[in-house]
Protein backbone atom coordinates (compact mmCIF):
# COMPACT_ATOMS: atom_id res chain seq x y z
CA UNK A 1 0.00 0.00 0.00
CA UNK A 2 1.37 3.41 -0.88
CA UNK A 3 1.04 6.45 1.32
CA UNK A 4 -1.18 8.01 -1.30
CA UNK A 5 -3.46 4.93 -1.24
CA UNK A 6 -3.55 5.10 2.57
CA UNK A 7 -4.72 8.70 2.46
CA UNK A 8 -7.35 7.78 -0.12
CA UNK A 9 -8.58 4.93 2.11
CA UNK A 10 -8.84 7.00 5.30
CA UNK A 11 -10.17 10.15 3.66
CA UNK A 12 -7.02 12.14 4.39
CA UNK A 13 -5.69 15.07 2.36
CA UNK A 14 -2.48 13.74 0.88
CA UNK A 15 -1.58 17.07 -0.72
CA UNK A 16 -1.74 18.87 2.64
CA UNK A 17 0.42 16.21 4.26
CA UNK A 18 2.90 16.39 1.41
CA UNK A 19 3.09 20.17 1.71
CA UNK A 20 4.12 19.94 5.33
CA UNK A 21 6.11 16.70 5.39
CA UNK A 22 7.62 16.97 1.95
CA UNK A 23 8.27 13.28 1.27
CA UNK A 24 6.23 10.07 1.39
CA UNK A 25 8.90 8.64 3.64
CA UNK A 26 8.29 11.37 6.17
CA UNK A 27 4.52 11.12 5.85
CA UNK A 28 4.64 7.39 6.52
CA UNK A 29 7.00 7.98 9.45
CA UNK A 30 4.68 10.55 11.01
CA UNK A 31 1.26 9.11 10.22
CA UNK A 32 2.00 5.97 12.27
CA UNK A 33 2.72 8.21 15.26
CA UNK A 34 -1.03 8.80 15.41
CA UNK A 35 -1.40 5.26 16.72
CA UNK A 36 0.24 6.41 19.96
CA UNK A 37 -1.35 9.85 20.10
CA UNK A 38 -3.61 10.42 23.12
CA UNK A 39 -5.48 13.52 22.07
CA UNK A 40 -8.49 11.76 20.57
CA UNK A 41 -8.73 9.47 23.58
CA UNK A 42 -8.70 12.53 25.87
CA UNK A 43 -11.44 14.14 23.81
CA UNK A 44 -13.69 11.10 23.86
CA UNK A 45 -13.12 10.48 27.57
CA UNK A 46 -14.05 14.10 28.33
CA UNK A 47 -17.16 13.64 26.18
CA UNK A 48 -18.44 10.88 28.44
CA UNK A 49 -18.92 13.40 31.27
CA UNK A 50 -19.31 16.45 29.05
CA UNK A 51 -16.28 17.97 30.82
CA UNK A 52 -15.95 21.32 29.02
CA UNK A 53 -12.25 21.85 29.86
CA UNK A 54 -11.28 18.35 28.80
CA UNK A 55 -13.40 18.63 25.66
CA UNK A 56 -11.75 21.91 24.66
CA UNK A 57 -8.19 20.78 25.38
CA UNK A 58 -8.64 17.38 23.74
CA UNK A 59 -10.33 18.85 20.67
CA UNK A 60 -7.79 21.62 20.37
CA UNK A 61 -4.86 19.18 20.53
CA UNK A 62 -6.50 16.79 18.07
CA UNK A 63 -7.25 19.60 15.66
CA UNK A 64 -3.58 20.63 15.48
CA UNK A 65 -2.13 17.15 15.26
CA UNK A 66 -4.57 16.00 12.57
CA UNK A 67 -4.07 19.17 10.53
CA UNK A 68 -0.30 18.67 10.51
CA UNK A 69 -0.80 15.11 9.25
CA UNK A 70 -3.20 16.18 6.52
CA UNK A 71 -6.22 14.57 8.22
CA UNK A 72 -8.30 17.60 7.49
CA UNK A 73 -11.77 16.12 8.08
CA UNK A 74 -10.82 14.94 11.55
CA UNK A 75 -9.14 18.29 12.18
CA UNK A 76 -12.29 20.21 11.18
CA UNK A 77 -14.49 17.97 13.31
CA UNK A 78 -12.23 18.50 16.29
CA UNK A 79 -12.11 22.23 15.58
CA UNK A 80 -15.94 22.44 15.81
CA UNK A 81 -15.82 20.84 19.26
CA UNK A 82 -12.94 23.07 20.33
CA UNK A 83 -14.89 26.20 19.33
CA UNK A 84 -18.00 24.87 21.07
CA UNK A 85 -16.10 24.55 24.35
CA UNK A 86 -13.53 27.34 23.99
CA UNK A 87 -13.60 29.32 27.22
CA UNK A 88 -15.61 32.48 26.64
CA UNK A 89 -17.57 31.14 23.69
CA UNK A 90 -21.35 30.74 23.97
CA UNK A 91 -22.53 27.16 23.53
CA UNK A 92 -24.37 26.59 20.27
CA UNK A 93 -24.90 22.84 20.36
CA UNK A 94 -26.96 20.75 22.73
CA UNK A 95 -25.19 18.03 24.66
CA UNK A 96 -26.93 15.46 22.48
CA UNK A 97 -25.61 17.11 19.39
CA UNK A 98 -22.11 17.17 20.88
CA UNK A 99 -22.45 13.48 21.73
CA UNK A 100 -23.46 12.78 18.14
CA UNK A 101 -20.49 14.76 16.82
CA UNK A 102 -18.16 12.87 19.12
CA UNK A 103 -19.58 9.59 17.92
CA UNK A 104 -18.92 10.70 14.34
CA UNK A 105 -15.37 11.67 15.30
CA UNK A 106 -14.85 8.29 16.96
CA UNK A 107 -16.09 6.47 13.87
CA UNK A 108 -13.87 8.51 11.55
CA UNK A 109 -10.95 8.19 13.94
CA UNK A 110 -11.38 4.42 14.27
CA UNK A 111 -11.48 4.07 10.52
CA UNK A 112 -8.35 6.19 10.24
CA UNK A 113 -6.51 4.23 12.91
CA UNK A 114 -7.52 0.93 11.30
CA UNK A 115 -6.22 2.13 7.96
CA UNK A 116 -2.95 3.35 9.47
CA UNK A 117 -2.50 0.10 11.37
CA UNK A 118 -2.98 -1.89 8.17
CA UNK A 119 -0.54 0.42 6.42
CA UNK A 120 1.97 0.04 9.23
CA UNK A 121 1.71 -3.76 9.15
CA UNK A 122 2.06 -3.77 5.40
CA UNK A 123 5.21 -1.68 5.73
CA UNK A 124 6.56 -4.28 8.14
Amino acid sequence: MTVQELYANIGGDYASAKKILMMDKMISRFIVKLLDDKSCGRLLTAGQTMDPVGLFEGAHAMKGVCANLGLMDLSHDASDIAEEFRPGNARRMSDDEVAKRLADIQARYDKTIAGIRAFSEAQG
Partner: peptide, 8 residues
Protein backbone atom coordinates in the same frame (compact mmCIF):
# COMPACT_ATOMS: atom_id res chain seq x y z
CA UNK B 1 2.37 19.38 24.50
CA UNK B 2 1.84 17.24 21.40
CA UNK B 3 4.66 14.84 20.69
CA UNK B 4 3.88 14.75 16.99
CA UNK B 5 4.24 18.51 16.77
CA UNK B 6 7.55 18.41 18.64
CA UNK B 7 8.75 15.65 16.31
CA UNK B 8 7.74 17.70 13.30
Amino acid sequence: DQEINRDL
